[in-house]
Each structure stands twice: as structure tokens, then as C-alpha cells.
Design a binder for these strands. Structure first.
Lengths: 250, 250
DNA sequence: AATCCTTTTTGACCTGAATCAAGCGGCTTG
DNA sequence: CAAGCCGCTTGATTCAGGTCAAAAAGGATT
């Protein structure tokens, strides 16, 4: 978990639009860079922070990906989120002054370290930053509600379809392909996140392929029928539904 | 949904310690009261705000209780939270400027209306308020993670036990009995919240009673074996486990 | 390229909770 | 006070997804 002292520069960061600097003036971004301690590299499988660690920093993902998970009293864990570049990790630790969850890198990843005390101070002086912090908190709450809906009411196939659509659209926002990507997490993590077993997830991947919705080889996924997959996921997909190639629905 | 212009006074509010004023000096509480528009009474079954309503206010619950729920594209709803006095409703609406969920009173309830724009302004000047807002956001994220664990990994009986323990401890913090209370929501809402059916919930109430964990008559619940119920819930209960009356476990 | 180890896939079987279907209070309303 | 309704309970049956077991496919290490 190397710590690199090379200065953090938001200006050349590919996820600048999605991260804390969103909505800030160049001048305010400079101030934000000034409170950002450093970059940090986390290798696959290493933890950025553990459950119970004392809270002092937030982390902004520059590249790579993480899973976050909570650990129950009986040792059982629940994966709560898969985090991509531009997202902020650690917000749930604020109130307890200690991390209730842990964050583990799914691949070699790079993060910006944000000392929260200094960030808080800066936000006090920069309303736009304040607002961006609220927005990030609020978005995270909204996302969790979506997942609650999945886990509470949806069948296994709908859950997986929804997750694939979710990942797809998040990659798209980051300028990557929305139809072809590599899942950085193992089946067990996907299963845990979706409240299923690895066997069920594996069977579903096979079934989706047989049905022509996706092509999948290990962690390499290509969505071949985005509309169909979106219908299965229940989220009316944001792409134009008048698009050819499928006549939908009952 | 009457709006009462009588001045809001945090000083005499029973949930002052749990609400926005927590940690604020008397002077800062005065400022908070000044930005609070009014009280509002919401009758059982009425909505404080609907999904899609534009966002301008947060609501602090003075008395009563609410459920919040999200609505999927197919019209299906998922209850996401049962809110008690002292809690803040509407935070998830910040980023989208529109409420992604709705809040419905489970009984006649009273709330303080907090225009967010003014609250935000005040928080900019009062660091303690700022921090309290962060804390409330952060706590809510933590809570959601607990529910994810329930829905993702736990059996039906564990889910209901966990919910009863949760309600119990939240009543306790508000100075009410932790062992005897009236559930303000119908079985269908409990079932929906826990990702179960009303039938299953009903059967579990019956079973818990047969096993001597609770006594239940309709919505009136008495926990007769708090330790046993806590064990079932998996959350090592915060009460002294050396307490007599039960020799535990396998 | 042989070994070990982890991840993934596939198959056979089982079970917990959903679904379907009645009946039962308690509460409102005429 | 009867009628109707809604929320709750209880029973019988079904099925989606879990569990157990084993094989196959990579990937890393020597």
C-alpha cells in the first residue's frame, strides 16, 4: 500500500466530473488539491481500511475498483457496494468515528487520500464543495434504496440483470464501453452482493448466454441484447427503446 | 395536513438530543429555530411528500411515525425505513432535487419543516450544525448497510427478530419501554420491509409467542425474552448477558 | 510441463418461504 | 344489530434458489 507524495492533480484526472471537484471553480479545485494529502496505491486483495479502523480520511478512487462490505457479529459478511473511479469511500464512518465497513481493492487501484477534518474545514468556506459533499451522501442513500428493492422483492435473474445494467451504465458514464467490460470481482462477491449463491450466479450467467442476452467468458462480459437485459432488470433502459432488433413485451 | 404557525421550540422537544439540535449550543439552537418554518400535522395514511415531488424541505419528526418507500418502474414498492421521532426525512432527495421515495404517516404525526436552502446557509456559518448534518447522513448509510445484511443473508425469523430488537432499542433511546410497545405499521408493511410476505410474518409472530420470546396481540408487542430474541437476531444485545433467566445456546 | 490451488461450472437433491385458499376477529357504517 | 370490509391468522401445496458434491478450467509456481 504505497503512498506516493507526487502532487494530486484533479485537472488531469479522468473522473474529475464525477468526483468531489464536480461543480467547483478552478480556484476552488486548487484549494481542494491543497488539502488532498497524497495518492495511494492499493493492490488487489488489500484493504484500504478495515472494519473498526478509526476514521480520519475519505478516499476518492482514481482508478481501479473496490468492494465494501460489513461484517456481522457472527462473522458473516455482506458486500454492500462495488465502487468505481470517481466514487468516494468512507462516508459511512463519519458518525461513529470508526469504519463500520471495510474496503478491499478488487484490482490494483489508486486513490486520493482526503483528510476529513481538513475537507470539512474547506467545505465550511466553499459552499460549492459543501453542496457536492451533500450530493454524494444523498446519491449514496438513493443507490442503497435501489439495492434494497432488489434484495427485498426481485428474483435471482432480475437481480443479476439489474446489476449488469448498473455496471454497464456506470462504465458508460466514465467513457468506457457500456456493452463490453471485465468484471473485476469474483462470482462469490457478485453472489454475496445480490443475496444469492455463487452457483446460482454462475447458472444465471450460463442461462443469459443461452438466451442470447450476453456473451460471457469468465469475467469478460459482452452485453449482446441491452434492451432485453434491461427489460429483465425492470429498469426501463435509458437507451432509445424504439431501437430496432426487438419487439418487446407482453 | 395542517400547517401550524406556532413557533417551533426545540428546547421543549422530547427528542432534542437525537435530532438536529444535538451538539449545538443554545445560541445555535436559536438560529436553527429561526430557519425552521413551522410545524405540520400529518394524519395516518397521508403522505408528507410523494415520490417525484420537488425537493425543498427536510422534515424532522416530532411525534408519531412514518414509513418511507421507493416505487419501481413496474409500480412495485419497497418499504425502506420506519422513521421515529427525532429522525430526519428527505435527505435522499438532495442530489436529484426531487424525492426518490415517499414518506407516509403510520399514525397522526407532527413534523418540523426545514427549508433546506436556509438550513444549508446556516450550516455554512455554524460548523456544529454542519457536523450534525454529516452525522445524520452517515448514520443513515450505516443503518442501510445493516438492512442490506438482513435482506441478503438472513432467514425470515432472524429478520423479524432483528427488526423487533431494532425497534425496541430505538424506543428505549427515546425513553419508552424497550419491552412493550405498539407497532404502528400493519403486517404487510413489516413484510415488505423485511422482504417477506404478510403470511410469513404472521406465522413468525405466532411462533415467537409459542416459543416464549414475545407476547403479541395484533400490533401490541411485549418482548418476554429479550436475550433470546437478541440471540435469534444475531445482534449480541447490548444488555448485560450475564443477566439471569436464561442459560444460552448450543 | 507438472503440480497445486483457486475460481467457475454443472448436476442432483432438498428446503424455506411464497402462493393459493379459507376462515376469523374487530371496526366501521347503514 | 346486521352487513360488509379490512387486517390478521392458519393450513395445504409448490417452487425458486440453496446445499452438497464433483468435475473442469484457469493461473501461478517451480
Amino acid at each position: 500500500m504505497d503512498q506516493i507524495k507526487s502532487p494530486v492533480r484533479c485537472g488531469n484526472c479522468s473522473v474529475r466530473r464525477l468526483c468531489l471537484p464536480a461543480g467547483l471553480s478552478d480556484q476552488d479545485v486548487d484549494k481542494l488539491e491543497a488539502v488532498t494529502k497524497k495518492k495511494q496505491i492499493v493492490k488487489a486483495g488489500e484493504r484500504l481500511y478495515g472494519a473498526g479502523d478509526s476514521f480520519s480520511n475519505l478516499f476518492a478512487i482514481r482508478s481501479g475498483s473496490f468492494k465494501t462490505a460489513v461484517i456481522a457479529a457472527d462473522g458473516d459478511t455482506q458486500v454492500t457496494h462495488f465502487a468505481l473511479p470517481g466514487e468516494i469511500l468512507g462516508l459511512d464512518a463519519y458518525s461513529g468515528r470508526t469504519h463500520p465497513s471495510y474496503a478491499e481493492a478488487l484490482e490494483t487501484s489508486s486513490v486520493c487520500v482526503l483528510p476529513f477534518a481538513r475537507l470539512e474545514e474547506l467545505a465550511q468556506a466553499v459552499p460549492a464543495l459543501q453542496q457536492q459533499i451533500y450530493a454524494i451522501f444523498s446519491e449514496e442513500l438513493q443507490q442503497e434504496n435501489e439495492i434494497l428493492m432488489l434484495l427485498g422483492k426481485r428474483s435471482a435473474d432480475t437481480r443479476l440483470a439489474a446489476m449488469l445494467i448498473n455496471i454497464s451504465s456506470r462504465y458508460a458514464r466514465r467513457g468506457y464501453s457500456s456493452t463490453r467490460f471485465v468484471l473485476s470481482m469474483p462470482r462469490t462477491d457478485i453472489a454475496n452482493y445480490l443475496g444469492l449463491t455463487a452457483e446460482t450466479v454462475s447458472r444465471l450467467f450460463s442461462r443469459f448466454q443461452k438466451e442470447g442476452l450476453i456473451r460471457v467468458a469468465q469475467r469478460d462480459v459482452e452485453i449482446t441484447d441491452l434492451i432485453g437485459l434491461s427489460e429483465l432488470a425492470g429498469t426501463h433502459c435509458s437507451f432509445d427503446e424504439s431501437e430496432l432488433g426487438r419487439n418487446s413485451v407482453s
